[in-house]
Amino acid sequence: MKTILTTGSNGLLGQKITEKILAEGRVKLKATSKGANRYPITNGYEYAEMDILNPAQVRAVIEKCKPDAIIHTAAMTNVDTAEANKELCYQLNVDAVKTLVSLCEEKNIQFIHLSTDFVFDGADGPYKEDDTVNPLSYYGESKVLAEELLKNSKANWVILRTILVYGITNDMSRSNIVLWAKGALEKGIPINVVNDQWRMPTLAEDLAEACLLALEKNAQGIYHISGKDYMSIADLVRKVADYWAFDKSIISEISSESLNQTAKRPLRTGFVLDKTIRDLGYNPHSFSEGLKIVDEQMKNSIK
């Protein structure tokens, strides 16, 4: 049975990978993250504190664990924070990848790397894996630089690009578009939502499954991972309102320009999933199915 090391195991995707491995026992898991373990179950796998910006610590953990593969989920993903703090973004999204890739080359470890639809400019989505990248933000640029590192390496690598991941963690410590919209609508707080950005939101469980499929099939190259439904952010928020029967009249549609965000966002991304479905056997949930899963998990977390 393969041993997998995950980075960023305290994050949404990291916790979903832990959950899936514990439920299915497909691999052995060494979970790592900065700081203490925040996953509520501590049996059935090992956990180590690991700061991806500390190369000596990264090497020590990897040499002790001897993983067959690394699933690298840790990154700076807040697009505006990345724009405002480019140096830290570069360290987290590029330098850390250099450290990990170098160790993967040295020790013949498979490297599964998470990337983003923000490598594209949004002028011509949905995108295929071999479409030309042209990031509009520093976050997107940092992820392109990381992808280039992998392409130029001798490591056994696969890049999984994804879009707008949603879901819940056990401690509800991570927000995302679905939880934000639900929280505001539940309280009756009027919200402004952009109607000119189009995405294919991805259930965190689907992305976790894709990571394990890429591992099991020893996938190589780039794969696009998202949900199957293409919608505007405004449509997404209305679907959240419909699912939980909230008042849609407090949703106001606005343009991206009027938001004055620090970083520029691509307008129309989305992915063509044909290659991933064919090669990996990926079968994502619909958005409505995803909302049902999130709803059930919320109810269970309250019990």
Rank of each mutant, 00 (worst) to 15 (best):
A75F: 10
A75W: 02
A75C: 04
A75P: 05
A75V: 10
M76S: 12
M76I: 14
M76W: 08
M76F: 08
T77M: 00
T77A: 12
T77S: 13
T77I: 10
T77W: 06
N78Q: 04
N78P: 03
N78W: 01
V79T: 11
V79L: 11
V79Y: 00
V79R: 05
D80I: 12
D80P: 04
T81Q: 15
T81E: 14
T81F: 15
T81K: 14
T81Y: 14
A82S: 15
A82K: 00
A82L: 01
A82E: 05
A82P: 05
A82D: 03
A82W: 05
E83I: 10
E83K: 10
A84T: 14
A84N: 15
A84L: 15
N85Q: 10
N85M: 07
N85C: 05
N85D: 11
N85F: 06
E87K: 13
E87A: 13
E87C: 11
E87M: 12
E87L: 13
L88H: 12
L88P: 01
L88Q: 15
L88S: 14
C89G: 09
C89T: 10
C89K: 01
C89D: 03
Y90N: 02
Q91S: 15
Q91T: 11
Q91D: 15
Q91F: 11
Q91V: 14
L92F: 09
L92Y: 05
N93S: 03
N93W: 03
N93P: 03
N93I: 00
N93F: 06
N93R: 10
N93T: 06
V94W: 02
V94Y: 00
V94K: 06
D95T: 14
D95S: 12
A96S: 14
A96F: 02
A96Y: 00
A96H: 03
A96E: 04
V97M: 01
V97Q: 04
V97S: 09
V97T: 12
V97N: 01
K98S: 07
T99L: 11
T99A: 13
T99I: 15
V101P: 03
V101H: 04
S102M: 06
S102P: 04
S102D: 09
S102L: 02
S102C: 11
C104G: 01
C104N: 04
C104I: 06
C104S: 05
C104K: 07
C104M: 03
E105L: 02
E105Y: 04
E105V: 08
E106R: 10
E106W: 05
E106N: 11
E106F: 10
E106Y: 07
K107I: 08
K107E: 13
K107P: 03
K107Q: 13
